[in-house]
Design a protein around this nucleic acid. Structure first.
Lengths: 235, 235
DNA sequence: GTCTATACACAGATAGAC
DNA sequence: GTCTATCTGTGTATAGAC
């Protein structure tokens, strides 16, 4: 599967994400009409991403946000009770996107080798499609309250656990070599993260998301596979 | 070489770093006595790292810094002309540390295989020793002015270039396989970065910096080396 | 060299008209 | 549902005593 196919099958649109946020937070949002609310939420999120990419969430003032969205200060506060709540909404939704799609994909494949490929690719493709959400959740993780921070860390451990268990299962089936699977899983995560943290670099180098994912998989398969079956034989 | 040996050979102390900053910025620092200035600068840097690790530089107030250092607001402003200047000093010094030691090490080895190992390890060991500097320069890179930001990006490209050229030289000498070396170098950098961005994870997993570095090198050598010479044969 | 006290700008947030 | 006008706290930075 390449990125193009992926987007057709899995990715929900930016509007659908905003709608999900609206439904989840109806009690704290003062707007009644769904269409208005969802459209403006979408506008707000895009503005937040655009501003914070350059200077971070703390440095973004509500006046910045007002200018970028074209909405007044007063209006903004009808969509969230305060700046902190806005941060919380985006963070929570970000982690929710990651978790949902990753679980879906890790359930669909049987063979460990294919499963490993599918999960690695899915995560990279997701991070490409929802790059602002991924980037934001990572970079602004420090700004959330300690209680929520624990949730973030366990989320990191959870997604790593998915990879580790694939490697362990593969070893039992003699598909993968023995080794420190936990550490290998960490390295995979590190490389996946690179894609959304340093996009400017890959745009400059003219590396596509498909190339990037294939290269990562080549490195990991060379390291993990018992026999080096040429990649063309499967799929 | 392991981490313990490395620290004996290369790393300059926290005090020496502060002294270097003092000498570089004598014109903007209002304190005359070297000993006083250097001691306080060291205290200030440690306080900045401790506070910003939790909430970021923008969220750190000068009052926070005053509390953490035990110095008054007025005193702090004798060491730097403003908060922005403080950020600039730390960023500049951070990049300077990385550049200096990396150049030194990449010049010391001849054989491409050993050179690749040495450079990879050196970067990881450096980031362990100066973790607060590395973490800070990465996480707060967004807060610097666009002109300086270009310098940061070219720094990233420069360190990557060191790795790429080792891989290219190695390919010419038939030590490394052909491939997209630029992309491989990127992946190495991504994994190196993981060490200082997610230290909490490796502390929890009980992974030492030596283990981490060896695992990274094993992955990369398995992927790049023409023949898989057992690692014990060299060094 | 370091302190306390203070100036002044700008942030987040709300009230109330439309 | 959205706007403008405004309140109040906190931030950076400085003046001037010690």
């Amino acid at each position: 599967m390449d990125y193009k196919e992926f987007t057709k099958l899995y990715a929900s649109s930016s509007w659908e994400i905003a709608r999900e946020v609206f439904l989840k937070n109806r009690d704290s949002i003062r707007i009644q009409k769904e269409k208005t609310a969802v459209n403006n939420l979408e506008k707000i999120f895009n503005a937040v991403f655009s501003i914070t990419y350059k200077k971070g969430f703390q440095a973004m003032s509500m006046r910045d946000l007002s200018r970028e969205t074209g909405m007044s200060l007063g209006s903004l506060y009808a969509y969230f009770t305060g700046k902190e709540k806005l941060l919380d909404i985006i963070q929570t939704q970000g982690w929710s996107i990651i978790k949902k799609d990753l679980e879906e994909i890790s359930a669909t494949h049987e063979n460990p080798r294919e499963k490993l490929r599918a999960v690695i690719k899915a995560h990279i493709f997701l991070s490409e499609f929802f790059r602002p959400w991924f980037y934001f959740t990572f970079m602004e993780a420090r700004n959330i309250k300690p209680t929520k921070l624990e949730a973030v860390k366990s989320m990191e451990e959870y997604t790593q656990q998915i990879l580790t268990s694939i490697l362990i299962t593969g070893e039992k089936q003699a598909v993968f070599k023995p080794g420190n699977h936990e550490l290998t899983a960490s390295m995979i995560k590190a490389m996946q993260q690179e894609w959304y943290l340093k996009r400017w670099k890959y745009r400059k180098l003219n590396v596509s998301v498909d190339q990037f994912a294939d290269h990562l998989i080549a490195i990991i398969e060379t390291f993990c596979l018992v026999e080096d079956i040429p990649p063309t034989k499967i799929e």
